[in-house]
Simulated scan of single mutants.
Amino acid sequence: MTVNEQKELIEKGWAALPAEYRIPERTPTLEEARMYCQRLAESHYENFHVASWFLPRRLRPHFHSIYAYCRISDDLGDEVGNSQQSLALLDLWQQELDACYRGEARHPVFVALAETIRACNIPKDPFADLLVAFRQDQTITRFRTMEDVLGYCRYSANPVGHLVLYVCGYRDAERFRLSDYTCSALQLANFWQDVIVDYGKGRIYLPQADMERFGVEEAVIADRNFTPQFRELMRYEVQYARQMFERGLPLIQMVDHELALDLDLFSRGGLEILHAIEQQNYNVLRARPVISKTRKAALLLRALSSKFLRRRAA
């Protein structure tokens, strides 16, 4: 591919995204960059798990910059609508990440992120790993085994947990290991919740080996034909994800109060998705399972109560 062809792909890709995502002609100041990231984070707050307002105020700018990086990276891979254009933009975003680590940031996300990287001493790997997952999305749409799905989660979900731990001052292997269980479990819960949504994008995350084991053909999903075999497949996958959540729960007791509250909400929210699937008798082909506002409020109160009790015990 020639340089001009690459530029054309990038330009067409930018045209499919919000104008504010483009690299500006003038490099913003740190204050301007932080405001940019905050606006982006707060405009997507319903999906914003990592920059919870329960975390210390001093850390919020760092979580804003991480969220903004994750948000735009995800959109480059998922909102363009053309794989070649997405790959070209992701390559460009990788170049900007590399430039950020050289001290040559241009985009407001990377100007803000550079300060987060400096203050929290974050290596490049977790940021780069996320881009690996978004590139895979352009070419890999089926997964043979659960190990293959978890291999994808290793790039698509687990780096986010590592970034959260880095910002909060944790860098040990045991906490990373437990975080990986939680992040992969949440990714699985989202996959099981969004079987029809993902199929509309040409993707199936249910392992093919599991589908064959339970006698479920791809046509069942395509036709939204809820069969007893599909119900048993989903029952199995929901239980698998629940066990992964449970393996990650000890992390909540190994971090400070503020992060513990977020992790508790994070894990319980994922478990609640699984419960919502069960409440629909595992029929995710009929309607996307959702958590009601009442249940969300109950989860919040439960987490707050746990935090209060932990502080009293301390």
Rank of each mutant, 00 (worst) to 15 (best):
R286F: 12
R224H: 12
F176R: 15
F127H: 02
E32S: 06
R203G: 08
T2V: 02
P289T: 04
I204V: 13
G200R: 00
H162D: 03
E147I: 08
Q280C: 15
E79Q: 15
V284G: 10
A133F: 01
F48A: 05
I277F: 12
L55I: 13
I277D: 13
A276C: 03
R60H: 12
V284I: 14
E115Y: 10
Y36P: 01
V195F: 15
R22W: 05
M234P: 06
E42P: 01
Q95G: 14
A241V: 03
P228F: 09
N225I: 06
A128P: 01
S184N: 11
S43K: 04
W53P: 02
R231S: 15
F134Q: 15
Q229G: 07
Q6F: 14
M35W: 02
M146K: 11
Q253V: 15
A119R: 02
G151W: 10
A314K: 13
N158W: 00
E218D: 11
N281E: 13
K12R: 10
E147D: 09
Q136D: 15
L87V: 00
D194G: 13
A222S: 09
S86R: 02
G169L: 02
L17R: 06
A314H: 11
V220S: 14
I204A: 10
R235V: 13
D194L: 10
L274W: 01
L40S: 05
L131V: 05
Y240A: 07
N82Q: 05
R242S: 06
D210A: 08
L300M: 13
D198A: 11
R242G: 00
L265E: 01
S184G: 07
M244D: 00
C100H: 01
E174W: 01
Y170A: 13
S184V: 01
N225W: 02
S292Q: 06
I291L: 04
L251H: 02
L265G: 12
R213S: 06
L271N: 05
E218W: 06
V290L: 07
P56C: 15
D78Q: 07
R144E: 13
F266W: 07
T139E: 09
P126V: 04
K201P: 04
N121Y: 08
M146V: 14
M1I: 11
T182R: 07
T294Q: 10
V197H: 10
I291Q: 06
E147T: 11
R286P: 07
F176Q: 14
F143Y: 13
V290S: 07
G169S: 08
A19Q: 01
W14G: 15
V167W: 00
A260L: 15
P250V: 00
R39F: 08
A114K: 04
R34I: 08
C153F: 03
T139D: 12
Y155D: 03
S179H: 07
